[in-house]
Design a protein around this nucleic acid. Structure first.
Lengths: 331, 331
DNA sequence: TATTTTTAATTAAACGATTAACCTATTAAC
DNA sequence: GTTAATAGGTTAATCGTTTAATTAAAAATA
């Protein structure tokens, strides 16, 4: 089965490739190609099962109709879901999505950007790794369409789709407080990223206002040694002079590791310790008790991110904004 | 910032693009390009931050160095993990992975294949949807490198990476029996796919051998109405004249839905009902009791699938086999 | 010295698709 | 009857790379 190109169709019909191209792209308007010939070309293309070569098309047209999506880890259900929705919307717009993982590593992110650029993606949607401002900045300077999701660099004024991290964490902490807890703890990643910083700020401001702030109750864990660090943190929170009675987990992976560790410590969740989790999860769903969690509007985030990106790619003039979508507290 | 192509480098240095290409591809061996000029070219390429255009390269070379991965649903953690590992291995081999979802729909799968073909992927790794034998067959006839994972069509003799579904389910069922259960149930998808059929066969043969077979204890649920169908099935299994004392769930999604439904019915798992699940999951991990589950060697599957695919892509020699990897029963 | 070999580059075609510019009959307009 | 407009195509350049074929000078060999 030889490759079927425009040329093959043209030769079989004894016409030029230009004519075939015109017809197959629907540009055979007024005074271009006769309707008989059009039909013959269409039929022949169908008969030979012609599939356009998008490498050639992309090369000629100067765009690949593909976008790069760089996430931390595609096996994480949050990013998997984000990817699914982005792909669905992208397909509707005629774009392919190429996914890359950073594993939260700066050099991996740099590699992925170069890689995707070599594949001529028309734009990028990225959940940036810690310390990647310069990479993002360089992209912007090179006029590469870019949208940040989940995390942003507000100082840099890059089009982004984020959530109201501060606000929702402030409110969620207040709910814990309203329920009477006296000594809440907070566990987050040992990293300097805007979104987790904002979550922490929401927590801190709420507990400070309620005069429940205790710096020792804020624990940091590393991404690479999550389980170990979590066990240590939980141990400290449970065994300090003033035992905590609630813990706020700042991300979905932290939430899972945290709950797992609490169970390992024979804690009865929601009786001994109240918890607040980030993102929904099958696991939380299965608990015999209600666990409040913060639900991000993933599908909406996917949609908006793609909209902002395509607006840049197809250059609709106006500058894309930084969007803050509302997360929801679910009980 | 103008696009940096070979031509730009060539012009800046006053040489031909051929020379630049040769050097940048490391083909400047004996009697090709002088080492001084080589160095100048390399330096200039670095200075201008040259990134090759892989559309042009792919067009010229006749391969895109990319592969298509078509899974049922990238937001499912099983497929997400598979994708992650495939991407990691692919990157090492210099291949990009483009992921598509079928949502278990035949027409979606067909669309994805056409789509990926237009992007000139060099090969495909697919978890085929129900009834997609003809699609797979067509691919093989068109000499498109193809590897099936997770599910296969053994009659069609297509290179595949599967697991020993029959055997592991036979053994796992026997373990349940050895623990004294008397009336086991089985829940699977309402579909005719080799892998789930094999799982069912393993279960059925084991219970038949132990004279515990009861056709009414085998329930089928649909992919689209999983939660509802599951509730109905669990209800039937719990309320039949002879109540079941164990349930074998045939896939990971079914396992989660099944456990969820059991909890909803106020069943105490492992006391009232023994369960057997497919695939590990964060949720199962969090139970206060041990739930046995069948663990698939996902990373190994990813590795083998890529090996089989690349073997086909890069060497038209020996035929790739159908591999059956061993799943493991974890208690 | 004449010839061959080696070194170091260039030329030009090709991959498949797009499209501005061009060409040639007809037909319409004045 | 001359000019203009329209219909229905074709030509040829181009996108960025690769590479076989070629060239030309320098070095080695006879």
């Amino acid at each position: 089965m030889t490759k079927v190109s425009l040329k093959v169709i043209a030769q079989e019909l004894g016409v030029s490739t230009a004519t075939v191209s015109l017809v197959l792209n629907g540009k055979n308007k007024k005074g271009r190609v006769s309707s008989e010939l059009s039909k013959k070309i269409l039929d022949k293309a169908a008969e030979l099962n012609y599939v356009p070569n998008s490498l050639a098309k992309g090369l000629k047209m100067g765009h690949s109709k593909s976008i790069g999506l760089i996430v931390a880890d595609i096996s994480n259900v949050f990013f998997g879901t984000l990817a699914l929705h982005i792909q669905n919307y992208a397909e509707k717009e005629g774009y392919t999505v190429i996914i890359g993982n950073t594993n939260e590593k700066l050099d991996q992110m740099a590699k992925m950007i170069t890689f995707l650029n070599s594949r001529q993606v028309d734009g990028l949607i990225i959940t940036p790794a810690e310390g990647s401002e310069p990479l993002a900045q360089a992209l912007v300077e090179n006029k590469k369409p870019l949208v940040l999701v989940d995390r942003g660099f507000p100082r840099l004024d890059i089009p982004s789709v984020l959530i109201n991290n501060y606000e929702i964490c402030f409110r969620s902490t207040n709910q814990l407080i309203a329920r009477g807890i006296k000594n809440p703890g907070f566990v987050s990643y040992k990293q300097d990223q805007f979104h987790t910083n904002e979550r922490e700020r929401g927590f801190v401001e709420a507990v400070t206002k309620a005069k429940l702030y205790d710096a020792d109750n804020i624990k940091k864990v590393s991404y690479e040694h999550l389980a170990n660090d979590m066990d240590r943190s939980i141990n400290e929170l449970l065994n300090s002079k003033k035992k905590v009675d609630a813990i706020f987990f700042a991300t979905n992976t932290i939430s899972m590791a945290g709950v797992k560790s609490l169970l390992k410590h024979n804690v009865i969740i929601q009786r001994d310790i109240q918890v607040m989790c980030f993102d929904e999860s099958e696991a939380i769903d299965l608990f015999p008790f209600q666990v409040p969690y913060i639900k991000q509007p993933i599908q909406e985030m996917a949609k908006k991110a793609l909209e902002l990106l395509i607006a840049q790619i197809e250059d609709r003039g106006e500058k894309a904004p930084i969007l803050y979508l509302d997360a929801e507290l679910i009980n």
